[in-house]
Design a protein around this nucleic acid. Structure first.
Length: 420
DNA sequence: TCTGGGGTCCTAGGACCC
DNA sequence: TCTGGGGTCCTAGGACCC
């Protein structure tokens, strides 16, 4: 039998900000999404005032009233802190899967001789001591059950942040206390479907009819049911796999009503997507571009469209990808709308060594490659977009708003010590 | 004034081929 | 009056995750 542990950082982004500013301890802290749009992380103290995903501009009264500390998100900092947490976790087992920026699955097979609750406490204490980040640990025989155990460990003060529900005499009570929408794999649509059919808790779902579930919720739903029964269907994925699709998209900080600015944004997004593509040493064969107006402004005329094309040969060469992205944008751009959001998607991604040169194009691949290597090196040491294509603009008034950003404490000493 | 961004998997249905 | 069937590939869209 497998033993999975899910280690989840508590209120991760808010906790990261606190590590470098301990005066925030005990105070309500909220970290905002890009453009300082909505709440994406809240300290315990802030949870009663600001909902998850709540638009911040609608909460400003409460923010002032309770002196809630607001932060723009700083993903450079959070990614580095995430790596530190993983480094600590990897001391506890060789089998580890970083699942998201704030969660990791650990496989504890063969650890039968130890008390898993104690081991969980050790993990918790060491991560806190070495990184400053508080975590919760849930343990169970499947990933889905480990997720549930983690939820219960967070909810229940008595657990002190750790709960193992493997062969627990109160398993049925535990499952009964979990609503279906709190189960990993059950989102809004399936919750509606299940509740309509009298399936309200994890216990109900565990005991549901397999055939019905398969028919209504595909094999993925069936897997969830089996996992609730303790049958492990979702394995640990230790190898970090290459992305099959790379997306770069942003909302603009203001409405944009001219082609020039939208095209700067698209060029800039294509540039960033191409960088990510090269980081995993891949090339792409398809590119897609989309734009849309602000759906919240129902009084404005709305437009949204997307378009994609196959590239003459797979590439990771920024100038070429920018050229195609702009070519596609021209086809879907319509005058007379106020645009709010746009994106570039790279698809048909394969390893760079799989390149099949097109006999009918005349491209100097090794020269292009050397140029991209040089640009990537410079940008990674001197800051992203230090070198960029002219098409991505100079003034860039559309670019993201981040009014409450903290320094990249762990990765940029120049910034911290204010060196020019 | 102000409402995030980046991914994966599965299925149905159309296109196309023999 | 009569108008095939089966396989495969691709894409769009829907569901989910953090």
């Amino acid at each position: 039998m497998n033993i999975f542990a899910l280690v989840d950082c508590n209120n991760f982004y808010a906790s990261c900000e606190r590590v470098f500013n301990p005066s925030l301890n005990g105070k309500p802290v909220v970290v905002m999404s890009n453009n300082d749009g909505c709440a994406v992380a809240r300290s315990e103290e802030a949870k009663k005032y600001v909902g998850m995903g709540a638009p911040i501009f609608k909460c400003m009264d409460l923010v002032r009233q309770h002196n809630i500390q607001l932060f723009s998100s700083n993903y450079t900092l959070y990614a580095d802190m995430s790596q530190r947490v993983q480094d600590v976790l990897s001391q506890f087992t060789p089998n580890i899967e970083p699942y998201s920026i704030d969660e990791s699955f650990l496989l504890l097979n063969g650890f039968n001789h130890i008390d898993t609750n104690e081991y969980g406490q050790e993990i918790r204490n060491k991560v806190l001591k070495w990184t400053g980040i508080p975590v919760s640990v849930g343990i169970g025989p499947t990933k889905t059950l480990a997720k549930i155990a983690n939820k219960l460990a967070k909810k229940n003060k008595m657990c002190q942040g750790v709960l193992d529900i493997t062969n627990h005499p109160r398993t049925d009570d535990f499952l009964k206390s979990i609503e279906v929408d709190d189960i990993w794999g059950i989102g809004g649509q399936y919750t509606k479907l299940l509740k309509r059919n009298g399936i309200k808790t994890a216990l109900d779902l565990r005991d549901a009819n397999e055939t019905w579930i398969r028919k209504k919720m595909t094999v993925q739903g069936l897997r969830t049911v089996l996992e609730l029964r303790g049958i492990s269907c979702i394995e640990l994925e230790e190898a970090v796999s290459d992305k099959k699709e790379i997306v770069n998209s942003r909302s603009f900080s203001k409405d944009v009503d001219n082609y020039q600015e939208v095209s700067e944004a698209i060029a800039s997004y294509a540039t960033r997507a191409a960088e990510k593509l090269r980081i995993q040493n891949s090339i792409c064969g398809h590119i897609s571009v989309w734009i849309r107006t602000n759906g919240f402004k129902t009084e404005d005329p709305q437009y949204s469209n997307s378009i994609s094309c196959k590239l003459p040969e797979p590439t990771a060469y920024t100038p070429l990808l920018v050229k195609y992205a702009l070519h596609l944008l021209k086809k879907i751009y319509r005058k007379g709308y106020k645009y709010k959001k746009a994106g570039v998607i790279l698809m048909d991604i394969v390893p760079a060594q799989n390149i099949q040169f097109n006999l009918f194009t005349n491209i100097n691949h090794s020269k292009n490659q050397m140029l991209m290597d040089a640009v990537d090196k410079i940008n990674s040491s001197w800051g992203s977009e230090m070198i960029r294509t002219g098409a991505s603009g100079y003034k860039r008034q559309w670019s993201m708003k981040r009014s409450h950003i903290t320094p990249c404490y762990t990765t940029n000493w120049k910034e911290i010590f204010n060196v020019a």
